[in-house]
Every structure is written in C-alpha cells, then in structure tokens.
C-alpha cells in the first residue's frame, strides 16, 4: 500500500510544482477534445435537428444507425481512421497520422453520433406543442426553427457534455492515431496508461486527479442540464 500513498504524495508535488510533462498532456487533451467537440457540434447539431424535427423517408433508419453508433468501440474508430489517414490510406497525403489533428479526427468520429443522436432525441421530446406555441405567438421561418432549437437547449447541452465526457476519457483512438508522442500527442489517458506500465504511479495518479476533476465538472454540468430539462 505504501507505494500507492507515496504515489499520491508525489502526484501532489508534480501538480503543485507545475510539472511540464503533466501539463503538456493536459494541454494536448484539452486542445484535442475541445476542437473535436466544436467540430462535432457544428456538424452534429444541425443534423440532429433535421433528424429530430423533419419527417422524411429513411428517417427511422438513420435514427437507428446513429443510436447504434453511440456504442462504437474506440479501438474500432482508431482502426478505421488509421486506415484512412495512414500513408496507404485515401487521406494519407494530409499527414494526419501521429499528430494531434489525427487524434481530433478520431474524436470527432466518436463524438458526432452522440451529438446527432442525443440532439435529435431532445428535439423529438419537445413534442409538437412547442412548435404550435411559437406559431400561435407569430413565429415563422428561420425564427421558428431557431426558437425551437433554443427551447431544446438543455437537451443540446446534454448532448454536447455527454460527447465531451466520451472523448476526454477515451484512450484507444488517441493511442492509435496520436502515437502517444511525448510533448506532442500524449494525452492524459495515453500518458496514464504508458506511465503506469513503466511503474511511474505518481505521474499516473497526478494525471488521474486532473481527469477526475474534469469528469466532475462535466458531470456537474450534465446534472444541471438534466435538472433544467426536467423542469421544462
């Protein structure tokens, strides 16, 4: 047990001293996951709205596909994206493999189905009375669509936070696509796996505490969004 307690003590020292290696991994994680989530929201929210609001042929099929993709294994995403961005792949010329951009591509593939499926669900759950209420007050056209989106904002926030929680804690795709390169593509989760294998518990625990803090913030925000949604 002693090595665990000494690991925790050392972890605090690393965090308080501002250890560059620790904060490099934190920075890479935050940059990659934030970029991935922004891209996913820009693409995913409009698609989720279309899927949740409009009735069109094949809608059920697409809903089932995106629902199924919610449980996409991260290693499988890593494998597929690797196949596309490696030198032999169709996107090999873009030199994305073993870069933070490559990690971002993988995380977007992971986050996008979550954003689409959950935002579509939140629009569906709004039911027709929101649309009717807005229409009876005189809304129409773009304003109507924007205000429907606004009424679903807590559901949308839940979709964004759930997706963020998924990408920030994933390890498979980040390892395969980023290569766990120190100072460049090493993220919190890949560093934790690597340092633990080396027996460097202090570094792993320090990174783990930061990940726990981020997870706490993410989950608190998620709980807030859920509460507001339920009082709708």
């Amino acid at each position: 047990m002693e090595y665990i307690f000494s690991g925790i003590a050392e972890a605090f020292v690393l965090l308080l001293k501002g250890d560059e290696e620790v904060y490099s991994a934190v920075s890479a994680t935050l940059r990659a996951s934030t970029a991935a989530i922004i891209i996913s929201l820009v693409i995913g929210l409009p698609l989720g709205f279309l899927l949740g609001y409009f009735d069109f042929p094949g809608r059920r099929f697409f809903r089932s596909v995106f629902d199924a993709l919610l449980a996409l294994p991260t290693v499988l995403v890593g494998l597929w994206v690797y196949a596309f961005i490696s030198n032999r792949g169709p996107l090999g010329g873009m030199n994305l493999l073993f870069t933070l951009k490559g990690v971002i591509v993988g995380e977007v593939v992971l986050a996008l189905p979550i954003v689409i499926a959950l935002s579509a669900q939140s629009i569906e759950e709004l039911d027709l009375s929101v649309r009717d209420t807005l229409l009876t007050l005189g809304a129409s056209g773009k304003r109507l669509l924007f205000d429907i989106l606004w009424e679903a904002r807590y559901g949308m926030l839940m979709a964004a936070i759930t997706a963020y929680g998924r990408v920030i804690s994933e390890v498979g795709a980040a390892t395969m696509l980023g290569g766990n390169i120190k100072w460049r593509t090493r993220t919190i989760t890949t560093a934790m796996a690597f340092e633990t294998n080396k027996g460097q518990f202090a570094m792993g625990i320090a990174l783990g505490m930061i990940l726990l803090l981020i997870a706490f913030i993410v989950n608190s925000t998620l709980s807030y969004a859920k509460r507001r949604r339920q009082t709708r």
């Binding site: 009375s129 929101v130 009717d132 209420t133 807005l134 229409l135 009876t136 007050l137 005189g138 129409s140 056209g141 205000d147 009424e151 904002r153 807590y154 507001r228 709708r232």
Partner: peptide, 19 residues
Amino acid sequence: ASLFRQEVTMLLQNARLLT
C-alpha cells in the same frame, strides 16, 4: 397563413410556456 397568424392567436388546451 403566417401573415394572418400575426392577427390571430390561439391558447392551446395544454398551453405550455417557453422556457
């Protein structure tokens, strides 16, 4: 219709408020 909806309004049976 949207033009006329500026003059005509309806209170639905289970009227809901905007959040």
